[in-house]
Design a protein around this nucleic acid. Structure first.
Length: 113
DNA sequence: CCACTGACTACTT
DNA sequence: CAAGTAGCCAGTG
């Protein structure tokens, strides 16, 4: 049996799995995903993977925001697209386009559901 | 293979 | 609150 489906590293695969688990209407942060994938300081890598993977996989990349609850993308660079996608899922933005993480942050892959 | 970049975060000044 | 510093490492050329 095949050991690995792709040449991707374990961290990369974990990132894919975690992102896919983010429920609709919730968001997660780069750092949280990195931690769940096994590398607490891999937030940067998550962003890189998101870029690469979202182009080849159908990942809900728009559900990933930075630790401040804001979209990290630059305007005219996907910022408005991500915001629109999130609003379409029922996520509301604050004055400075800040998402209330206390409300929307994904609790993580809970065993109960 | 080497050097640089970057959808980040936490800590310090 | 703004700016600087350090850590981390996969993509890209």
């Amino acid at each position: 049996m095949s050991k690995i489906k792709s040449m991707l590293s374990r961290f990369t695969k974990n990132v894919i799995a975690v992102i896919k688990e983010i429920p609709e209407g919730s968001v997660s942060t780069y750092g949280r995903i990195a931690e769940l994938a096994g590398n607490r300081s891999g937030a940067r890598q998550v962003s890189r993977l998101l870029h690469t993977l979202s182009a080849k996989h159908e990942l809900p990349w728009h559900r990933v925001v930075n630790a401040s609850g804001q979209i990290s993308l630059k305007k005219s660079r996907g910022y408005e697209l991500q915001k629109a996608l999130l609003e379409a899922e029922g996520i509301l933005f604050g004055l400075r386009d800040v998402i209330d993480l206390e409300v929307y942050l994904w609790s993580g892959p809970e065993k109960k559901e």
